[in-house]
């Protein structure tokens, strides 16, 4: 089975290319991440993949079916967590799952036998009759994940599954997603959280302005795209110091507000230099995915 294959996909709105020719493919059983700043085109890409908007050009295969031609057949075997919750507020938790299962043509008895285990999976055991209106944000997100599993899909498409959640809720979702991957599901996920992508994704792509900038395993991207060590320098004098002296120690140094981020292969000389300047606070750490992301997409705000 080909979970998803996207080739030279383009989509523009009002003359503005939102997706500007991207290609990627998911392997069976992997978790693949799509990262990118606001407006990078992640949600638009997912909508094209689901057949919910027609691409200008390019080809898409979703669970072996050509999209948009046979999008409806493809969606039979896909589960979706949309970026914004759209649970049915008129219903209880169990009714949400029941009604959603019917959209897949499932028989009521088949759905009802799945409901307890789906709620259990979502950490909502015993909440069958609880109204959606009184659920917390984390509970809603978990129920949306359970809803996406009602048809036992082969592929899950998750658009920012943990945005807006507290750390506890986020960890629970991560744990559940890992369980799904262990069970052999394939996952395509978008996120703004680099630690989430590092933890969950076997491979990921960083998008900006509708293009894929890089693709690969998180560890490899950190190794190949950026210097291994980062020294952050804080304080009122940091920008001035960076301007005057950082160049002698760091290959690259970026200033953001009152912090200078120095990217180095060997931190020792820089740390020695800074030890003599107590007015500057320092933090030495290994480079991470966020550094790669910021290097590729820049530090400017998008909207």
């Amino acid at each position: 089975m080909v979970p998803l294959k996207v080739d030279a996909l383009r989509k523009s709105y009002g003359g503005h290319q939102v997706v500007a020719g991207i290609s990627f493919a998911l392997q069976r059983g992997e978790c693949y991440g799509l990262l990118g700043p606001n407006g990078a085109g992640k949600t638009t890409t997912l909508r094209c993949c689901l057949g919910l908007t027609a691409p200008d050009s390019g080809s898409i295969t979703l669970v072996d079916e050509p999209v948009p031609a046979r999008a409806r057949e493809a969606r039979m075997r896909v589960g979706v967590v949309p970026q914004f919750d759209n649970l049915d507020p008129d219903f209880s938790c169990a009714e949400n799952l029941l009604v959603y299962g019917r959209y897949f043509g499932m028989a009521d008895t088949a759905i009802r036998t799945r409901i307890p285990q789906l709620l259990e999976f979502a950490g909502l055991a015993g909440k069958e009759d609880t109204s959606i209106r009184i659920l917390s944000g984390g509970m809603k997100r978990r129920l949306t994940l359970a809803r996406a599993l009602v048809n036992d899909p082969d592929l899950l498409i998750l658009d920012e599954p943990t945005t807006g959640l507290d750390p506890q809720a986020r960890h629970l979702i991560w744990e559940r997603l890992k369980r799904l991957i262990a069970d052999g599901k394939t996952i395509l996920l978008t996120t703004h959280f680099m630690d989430e992508a590092e933890r969950l994704c076997g491979r990921l792509a960083i998008m900006d302005a509708g293009r894929i900038m890089v693709e690969g395993a998180p560890r490899e991207l950190i190794k190949s795209q950026i210097e291994p060590q980062v020294v952050e320098v804080y304080g009122e004098d940091a920008p001035g110091w960076a301007q005057a002296e950082a160049g002698a120690f760091a290959r690259r140094c970026e200033v953001s507000g009152e912090t200078a981020f120095c990217y180095v292969d060997d931190a020792a000389p820089l740390l020695d230099h800074l030890a003599a300047r107590p007015q500057l606070a320092t933090l030495h750490r290994p480079a991470n995915l966020e550094d790669v992301f910021l290097k590729l997409t820049g530090r400017d705000l998008r909207d």
């Binding site: 057949e73 949309p82 759209n86 959603y100 959209y103």
Partner: peptide, 14 residues
């Protein structure tokens, strides 16, 4: 308001 139509269209419903 509720975006129910969008939710339904993520299932195999046109």
């Amino acid at each position: 308001v509720q975006k129910t139509w969008e939710a339904i269209m993520n299932a195999p419903v046109s």
